[in-house]
Design a protein around this nucleic acid. Structure first.
Lengths: 107, 107
DNA sequence: ATCTTATATCGAATTAATTCGATATGTCAA
DNA sequence: TTGACATATCGAATTAATTCGATATAAGAT
């Protein structure tokens, strides 16, 4: 249980906005409009939402949101997929599962 | 899921010392010497360790440790039982169980 | 009553997180 | 190749967390 940095994960989770982003990304269709409107039909980034859509919902500056997403990615909570000029972020379920396990077994 | 303040919990967990305290309190007998030496035989605070013992292990100032324990208690991660001049802190398993549930079901 | 010991609280210094606007980078379209 | 748009990074201001030593409180022992 050491490829996951628990402290960084908990830090990332201890902010309301970041927690919300994670929750919203559980159901992107429900929480974000215009799903993947920039992607051609044949491309699909399952569960991914671009920074702009997240920023609009979050209502913080573009730089702050970008920074937050990057933090969450470094913590392993999100993964980023770039398509053209867009970056799509989606949940990294593997890490989420690992934290649960970690809390249960080690904390 | 609203009597638990998730943000305060994650904040409390995002510090190495505090995380360690929680882990050590899983097995107090193993991690702290002189278990409940101040208590008379007929009194037992199941799983509880007094501030002094925790402070010794943590190696931070008395005031810092006291502050940390209080933070964790307010977050619901620990509960405090006072006996005489000593305060015994022990894990609050209920909250721990709730966070796991929260992560699984809501995050 | 006084002294000691355990813990809590206060005030302050230092370090880290939050958040922004400005700017840089990278990509697509004309 | 220039312009427009999406995102990332930088530098700085503000706010919050960390941590300490000093002091307060509370209980037990003399």
């Amino acid at each position: 249980m050491d490829n996951l940095n628990v402290l960084d994960i908990f830090k990332a989770l201890s902010n309301e906005t970041r927690l919300n982003i994670l929750r919203w990304l559980r159901e992107p269709e429900k929480n974000f409009p215009a799903q993947q409107a920039h992607l051609p039909k044949e491309v699909s980034i399952e569960g991914g939402v671009c920074v702009g859509d997240i920023q609009e919902k979050v209502n913080l500056s573009q730089s702050t949101v970008s920074h937050y997403l990057s933090l969450m990615q470094k913590a392993g909570l999100l993964e980023a997929v770039r398509y053209g000029q867009w970056t799509y972020y989606r949940r990294n379920e593997e890490t989420l599962a690992k934290i649960t396990k970690f809390i249960n077994e080690e904390i």
